[in-house]
Design a protein around this nucleic acid. Structure first.
Length: 731
DNA sequence: TACCTCCACGTTTTT
DNA sequence: CGTGGAGGTA
């Protein structure tokens, strides 16, 4: 047992071997939190304190879950397959699959990803004839998700105005449609399994008794529903270890509530908070800089990272005239780093928003530096893959209207909008699914054969492939659906064809992985004894859930030595030898949209903190006085975040040649300068309006008395105001 | 059905 | 400045 615990520092050891009660671990960046989590699991099992199935470990990303399982396996020779280690959504999926009857779901229920959900919301809103200008689809989607995350069903939502009432109706209709079609969105997975436990006393007791230990990673990112879910499961005295870092909470904008860390202390009667403050990643100056920055936030739980590895080099700051010059500087530095032996894959180029990558990519491309951009389309989100999956989904569950609509005429088979409208009408009138309507539709002429052709195709697929292995089924489906033929004809369909082949490979790998590690679930769960039905999972259903829950990698070509480009958000959890943070300008980073939001600036600062603490040895900060954004030249001032780092650990490098030669400033258009200052008003300035109250100038158009200002008001949102008429004062 | 033109929009995003 | 979506036309 001591073997496991070797090499842990004192706080790490305290956390790892804490017993008999819940504990909060404040784990700073690079302080070894994953090590603590996994060692603790191994230790609990190895010392016989618990059986593997009496423990649950929850993470946010599949990557983190896999990493955890991998590390556990390397410490203990046990089969981790049946263990409840996974993401919130993955574990909820498992729960709902096991107890689909109690959860009132069809056994074959499908999981909608965000894009699927959005198109369902569109369909619902169109069928309700809701004005899509006043009620943007995305906003409705957000409304639905945030209510679910608060645990509110449509009948519990209390709208304050007509706007809210309409959206609540959309929510109601949406929920009804989901039920009819047998589909479940991401937040539904959580809410449904929370309600399942809440409603089903016997089931709740079973799981409460089963899980003696619950471990939660990235606790600062939990939302209210996830917190409630955990609390419910732990109510019978499970020991919960919550590991998190309030300073790295950067997802409040999508519902994460780092206040859960405070609630946790009181709700779980925490006696001891363990702080992991020794950092094993970065050199001293980088940590000092990050510490100094984050001190400007209020209400922190409090924590100061330190290292014993020396102070290292100062943090380098570069001020460019233009965005192009900023890129040139970064590229020259990268080349220098490369020449001195740093591999490109150990260098990260970070930015606040994706739009900023273009200028950088342009420069990198010209310089011939290989780079890899993170973000963008993931494997299971690609059009051709989604089409193939839609065929599979329809085979698995014919009431999936979304899947049907996606492929009923793709590849085109002569079923036009007209025909589809008829089928929809019919379905609407008879309250049936599109599939049923299509089967019975009294259609005229050509469309009859087309529609029956489609129905026969799916039926045939279903019958012919009985007993096929999953990869064979998929291969058969993409062949006879005409997808392969369609993309063969397509001029640039090569990549898509490859992806379809890759889908078959993914299925093979999926099946192989399941086969090689048989689930311990039945023995472990003793479900039979408890009287629960455990049904063998259909591999197809299982694979489809996997595709929704784990969208796969963004990029195919990993492994080669390439510079890493990504947003700061995407960099969370990663580390690099050298890090460049670009675009450190007021309005960009901190982003102008976040300035007005409550807590917005502090979240931006945490974002900066995350960015800085990615660096192991060298950190660069850069900004530009002039930048092309959204087709407009903007003049930005240096980010306040640079000022928040002590001068003593900064080194401002403004090499003369960058100021004079490379990327000379673009010629000024005279209007540009005046844009910013009609009537003494400028972008970013806080103003007061008699009716709308306090706001910030976001944009300026025109000059003199013609000038119009766009102001973002705290209460009433974005407004365009004519300077001549609106009585604005400085606030 | 495919293509084209026009228009609106433009933080961060995992599951 | 670019892109993506929607809607109209051949």
């Amino acid at each position: 047992m001591s073997e496991l615990l070797k090499g842990l520092n004192q706080p790490q050891l305290d956390a790892t071997t804490h017993s008999d009660s819940s504990v909060l671990v404040l784990a700073g960046a690079g302080s070894g939190k994953t090590k603590v989590l996994t060692t603790r699991i191994a230790w609990l099992i190895q010392t016989g304190q618990i059986n593997p199935f009496e423990l649950m470990a929850v993470t946010f990303t599949n990557k983190a879950a896999k990493e955890m399982l991998f590390r556990i396996t390397s410490m203990l020779p046990i089969n981790t397959r049946g263990m409840w280690v996974g993401t919130f959504h993955g574990l909820c999926n498992r729960l709902l699959r096991t107890h689909f009857r109690e959860a009132n779901l069809p056994q074959t229920f499908q999981i909608l990803d965000s894009a699927d959900q959005l198109s369902l919301v569109k369909r619902v809103m169109k069928s309700l004839s809701i004005d899509e200008v006043r009620y943007p689809f995305r906003q409705a989607q957000y409304f639905i998700n945030s209510n679910k995350e608060e645990g509110l069903r449509p009948d519990k939502v209390e709208p304050v105005d007509d706007f809210g009432r309409t959206l609540t109706e959309v929510y109601r209709a949406y929920d009804r449609t989901c039920a009819n079609e047998g589909v479940v969105d991401f937040s539904e997975l959580l809410l449904r399994s929370y309600e399942l436990l809440l409603k089903n006393e016997r089931l709740l007791k079973h799981y409460q008794n089963r899980f003696k230990h619950i471990l939660v990673d990235e606790f600062q990112d939990t939302n209210r529903l996830q917190y409630a879910w955990l609390k419910l499961l732990a109510e019978q005295g499970a020991c919960v270890m919550a590991v998190g870092d309030d300073d790295q909470s950067i997802y409040a904008f999508r519902g994460a509530n780092s206040g859960n860390m405070l609630s946790f202390e009181t709700d779980f009667a925490i006696e001891k908070v363990v702080k992991l403050e020794q950092n094993y990643r970065s050199l001293g100056n980088i940590l000092d800089g990050a510490n100094a920055l984050i001190k400007n936030n209020d209400g922190r739980l409090g924590k100061n990272l330190w290292t014993d590895q020396g102070e290292g080099e100062p943090i380098r700051v570069f001020r460019a005239m233009t965005d192009g010059e900023e890129a040139s500087f970064i590229i020259e530095e990268i080349q220098a780093l490369r020449n001195s032996g740093t591999e490109l894959k150990n260098i990260a180029l970070l930015y606040r928003s994706n739009a900023q990558s273009r200028v950088l990519e342009h420069g990198l491309f010209s310089a011939g530096l290989p780079y890899r951009v993170y973000g963008g389309l993931r494997f299971f989100e690609r059009q051709e893959v989604k089409h193939a999956l839609a065929y599979l989904r329809l085979i698995a569950n014919t009431s999936d209207d979304g899947a049907l609509l996606r492929i009923i005429n793709f590849p085109t088979r002569g079923i036009g909008n007209r025909t589809i409208e008829n089928i929809r009408d019919l379905a609407e009138r008879s309250g049936s699914t599109l599939w049923q309507a299509a089967c019975s539709a009294p259609l005229s002429g050509r469309s009859v054969t087309a529609v029956t052709g489609f129905i026969n195709l799916i039926e045939k697929l279903k019958n012919e492939t009985l007993g096929f292995s999953l990869p064979d089924l998929i291969e058969h489906a993409i062949e006879s659906s005409g997808l392969v033929e369609h993309y063969q004809k397509d001029r640039d369909g090569q990549d898509r064809l490859e992806n379809l082949t890759e889908l078959i490979n993914a299925a093979s790998a999926f099946v192989a992985e399941r086969a090689s590690t048989p689930s311990l679930e039945p023995q472990m769960e003793n479900n039979a004894e408890e009287g629960f039905n455990v049904t063998e999972l259909d591999p197809l259903i299982d694979f489809l859930a996997h595709a929704s829950l784990e969208a796969g990698d963004n990029q195919a070509h990993a492994g080669e030595d390439a510079l890493q480009l990504m947003t700061v958000h995407a960099a969370k959890g990663l580390e690099f030898h050298s890090v460049f943070i670009s675009g450190l300008e007021e309005g960009l980073f901190p982003h102008e949209n976040s300035i007005n939001e409550h807590g917005g600036l502090e979240e931006e600062r945490r974002l900066m903190y995350v960015a800085m603490t990615r660096a192991m040895r060298r950190l660069y900060l850069s900004h530009s006085q002039m930048r092309m954004l959204h087709g407009q030249t903007r003049y930005n001032i240096e980010s306040r975040f640079i000022d928040e780092i002590p001068e003593t650990i900064l080194k401002k490098i403004n090499d003369a040649k960058f100021i004079t030669t490379s990327a000379a400033p673009r010629p000024h258009k005279p209007t540009m300068v005046s844009r910013n200052t009609p009537g003494g008003f400028r972008i970013g300035q806080q103003v007061k309006h008699a009716k709308f109250g306090i706001g910030i100038i976001v944009q300026v158009e025109g000059q003199g008395t013609d000038a119009r200002l766009q102001v973002n008001f705290r209460e009433s949102g974005l407004k365009w105001l004519a300077l001549e008429y609106a009585k604005l004062t400085q606030a």
